[in-house]
């Protein structure tokens, strides 16, 4: 798998984390999430904690391990982010015509 051409912005990273988390309605462990978003576990933990503190993801732990899941607020963020991105991509395309 090749390297990405450009560095992801922090907001893109947050969106990707949320996107992967929403594909696991039963909850996802940090190890698996790290593979999904391609971010080392130690760095990913800080990002996920930030999302948890904002109520965009939720953390729940049983005796053995900790899982992360999506929240309605997180889903709302994702929808808004991708809608906005859709508009911005279109506006960006239009700007090439000028």
């Amino acid at each position: 798998m090749g390297r990405r051409n450009s560095k992801r912005s922090k907001i893109e990273l947050y969106a990707q984390i949320l996107e992967v988390v929403t594909h696991y309605p039963e909850g996802i462990r940090i190890t698996r999430l790290s593979y999904g978003v391609r971010v080392p576990v130690d760095r990913l933990k800080l990002l996920v904690e930030k999302l948890c503190s904002l109520g965009l993801t939720r953390r729940y732990a049983d005796e053995e391990e900790t899982h992360y899941g999506s929240t309605p607020k997180g889903l709302e963020f994702l929808d808004t982010y991708f809608r906005m991105k859709g508009f911005l991509d279109e506006l960006d395309k239009g700007s090439h015509l000028q």
């Binding site: 593979y35 391609r38 971010v39 576990v41 990913l44």
Partner: peptide, 9 residues
């Protein structure tokens, strides 16, 4: 079972 992020996993 993953070992964490990295090509080793």
């Amino acid at each position: 079972e993953g070992l964490g992020f990295g090509p080793g996993g």
